[in-house]
């Protein structure tokens, strides 16, 4: 690896880090505004014009609050819990191809930090360890509501991961590769996977909501039953990190959904452009798709009431997994037929 590549990758990592945090911060603003519109209110409008500085005010408030650790808490685990959550939320963006290659200073720069040949499995690996942040934090708080939140989170994650994996396998079958870059390239132009795999997309979207702990699956932090859920005992920026990691993973998983089913950075009529114009347009197309997903996820939160826990388990195990398996089998048969193996 030569020095120039090292520099450009480091710059890309830093840029992605800042963008993820910035997007997560403004997602909180957007969510509050959206909730306000849906409920016919005004929403935050005091800090700056249209309340645009609200996330900064919130962040400052978080930092200035007292950082409190309960006396009977497991101190180290209590501290690393939010860290793990944030880490797993951020690291997935490393395998996301954000656009076509861009040409800067005479170098062809790939807008993907790591082109892993098993990128999609990496995403699942990170998703599956993401629950540790919540579990460790909830347990270390030494509070029964936190523990309930942690236990709910873990059983929910395990149950929905299966259906998520099975629905994503169909995409791997279609594109014949586990690399996110190849998956995106196989959907050139308007040849998006959603047209071939609507069922898989539907399952993937529902399970993503569950993995994100977003409404209607936000049982680990269900305030009407568990006070604050797993972060009941947290205060100051530790709580901030938990909330932030939820928004960051919302951003990244919207990106993953756009990549797997909506063509990633591809857009119709992209063959008419080339070079840096194409790169910038592709980034814009990708950003638009991510924005739409974030909007839909928020829209669902303010529309649909929360599930009961047994309904959640029923949906996961008895509806989503069988449907996903049948969908996978049908896809397998069709792919085998098309390839002439049957």
């Amino acid at each position: 690896m030569d020095t120039a590549m090292l520099i450009e990758k480091s710059a890309l990592v830093l840029l992605l880090f800042l963008i993820s945090l910035g997007v997560a911060a403004y997602q909180t603003y957007f969510e509050r505004k959206l909730a306000a519109w849906i409920q016919d209110r005004v929403g935050p409008d005091r800090a700056g014009p249209f309340g645009i500085l609200q996330p900064i005010a919130d962040g400052t408030k978080m930092f200035l609050k007292e950082d409190f650790i309960p006396a009977k808490a497991d101190k180290w685990l209590f501290i690393i819990g939010p860290g793990i959550s944030m880490f797993t939320a951020l690291i997935t963006s490393a395998v996301v191809p954000w656009g076509t290659n861009i040409n800067l200073f005479g170098r062809d720069i790939s807008l993907q930090v790591a082109d892993f040949n098993i990128g999609i499995l990496f995403v699942f690996g990170v998703v599956s360890i993401g629950v540790y942040g919540i579990m460790i934090g909830g347990w270390a708080s030494n509070n029964k509501y936190s523990l309930y939140g942690a236990i709910r989170a873990s059983s929910q994650m395990i149950s929905y991961e299966l259906a998520m994996g099975i629905s994503a396998i169909t995409i791997v079958m279609l594109s014949g590769s586990l690399s996110l870059n190849d998956i995106v390239k196989s959907q050139h132009g308007m040849n998006w996977n959603i047209f071939y795999q609507p069922v898989a997309f539907f399952i993937f979207f529902i399970t993503s909501l569950a993995e994100l702990n977003r409404a209607p699956f936000d049982l680990p932090e269900c305030e009407s039953e568990l006070i604050g859920g797993y972060h009941t005992e947290y205060s100051s920026m530790k709580l901030g990190l938990y909330l932030f990691s939820e928004y960051t993973s919302m951003f990244v998983s919207s990106a993953i959904m756009a990549i797997l089913f909506f063509g990633g950075y591809n857009f119709p009529g992209m063959d008419a452009f080339s070079g840096n114009t194409l790169a910038i347009l592709s980034i814009a197309a990708f950003a638009l798709k991510i924005f739409l997903f974030i909007f839909v996820i928020m829209w669902i939160r303010w529309t649909i009431p929360r599930f009961r826990f047994d309904q959640l388990m029923h949906l996961g195990w008895k509806v989503l997994i069988p449907v996903a398996i049948v969908n996978m089998l049908i896809t397998g048969l069709v792919v085998a037929w098309n390839q002439g193996w049957m």
Partner: peptide, 8 residues
Amino acid sequence: GAIMVLFL
């Protein structure tokens, strides 16, 4: 990701 979560 799965077995150890169940252990925990």
